[in-house]
Design a protein around this nucleic acid. Structure first.
Lengths: 204, 204
DNA sequence: ACCTGAACACCGTTCAAGT
DNA sequence: ACCTGAACACCGTTCAAGT
């Protein structure tokens, strides 16, 4: 059956026009969400997109670069959640605790993304754009601490110390929840107790 | 060159006598420590031991079972460290903080073992013997909390809540240190601040 | 019982070649 | 520029066969 000369309206080979990169990221995210990071194969995403298994190398230097791009998307929405929680709860101590809970809830709602972001799958050091996104998310936490120090809700001193303490705690609760060590019901109670505990621990 | 009839004194094929299992665990631990978990291949450990690459299946059902055995060894020494730190520092609040520091230091000294134990490489649910070792290590923490509650050094109530809070925090600091997010010098300072913060956060 | 060798069904990545 | 197909150097695991 010979091909017709007439140009097709819209066909699956639209990837020739430059959106293969975005499509690859979306496909990778989809399989990560449904089947986990360890099930992600480059051959698989190529197949999902009806594209050769090596087409990907036109857009990413290797598999870890693809993962980094997926993680970058995750960091952007993560950052947004942290800022929204802090401001939505009116800042202060309530805002601090809301931010901590938002951190943990993001991890529980998007366990696969969270694992890609923090599970040691990314090559170190992080690619520059990803490092920027990651630093921005952490900065949301530092900003909250700084404001609490100014309002005498947190003890004065180097803000990185309480920021890392808080980060470590919510990250720890998140990992325990994601790994199934904490049942979903227990995770919420543990999260509430932990963020309140950190607030007490750093209080002026 | 025909083989002689005389039995050899001591030869590399001593694995025929039953210690292949132990040798496999040691070989796996060695390559994990020197080259990381992701560099561990069953073919590699077979080669290291001068044994067929499938000999391992006589002793372990699969790769994750080998990893579980490595992790079990890690949990045993880990448990010992936690108990020793608590008792060595005279229990109480000093003991609690010493235990937290010992937790983080174990992770920093044995990053590969720690990653195998808590990095999501183990198949869930954990094999029974490993679950036992893991629970015993966590119990050291719960025991410390219980004793602090009796001594009015920790607020009364369900001990699992402060225990999980403390666990999450030290685990979080440990992961940040292992992943290189915290430089070694910063890790020690962060660890000290965090364990003191938890002690304050759970105080009566 | 314990171990081997060949085979199977996968991987990520490279590279010459096509359009 | 962008994509393909074949090839390379790996994996974990199964299984019939050897001792």
């Amino acid at each position: 059956m010979p091909r017709l000369r007439r140009p097709p309206r819209k066909r699956p080979d639209r990837y020739h026009h430059g959106d293969l990169r975005a499509a690859l990221i979306q496909a990778a995210l989809r399989t990560i969400q449904t089947r986990g990071v360890e099930a992600l194969t480059l051959r698989g995403v190529g197949e999902d997109l009806g594209v050769s298994r090596t087409a990907l190398y036109r857009h990413f230097t290797d598999k870890s670069a693809l993962l980094a791009a997926v993680a970058a998307e995750g960091f952007r929405t993560f950052h947004g959640r942290l800022v929204a929680a802090w401001e939505g709860a009116g800042r202060g101590r309530a805002g601090f605790e809301a931010q901590g809970l938002a951190y943990i809830r993001f991890a529980i709602e998007h366990p696969s993304s969270y694992r890609v972001m923090f599970g040691g799958f990314l090559s170190r050091p992080l690619p520059p754009d990803l490092a920027t996104e990651s630093a921005a998310a952490f900065q949301a936490l530092v900003d909250a601490i700084l404001e609490m120090q100014r309002a005498h809700l947190a003890a004065p001193g180097e803000p990185l110390l309480p920021a890392r303490f808080a980060w470590a705690t919510v990250h720890g609760i998140a990992m325990l929840a994601i790994d199934g060590v904490l049942a979903p019901a227990d995770a919420e109670a543990a999260a509430r107790f932990a963020v309140a505990g950190v607030a007490r621990g750093i209080a002026a």
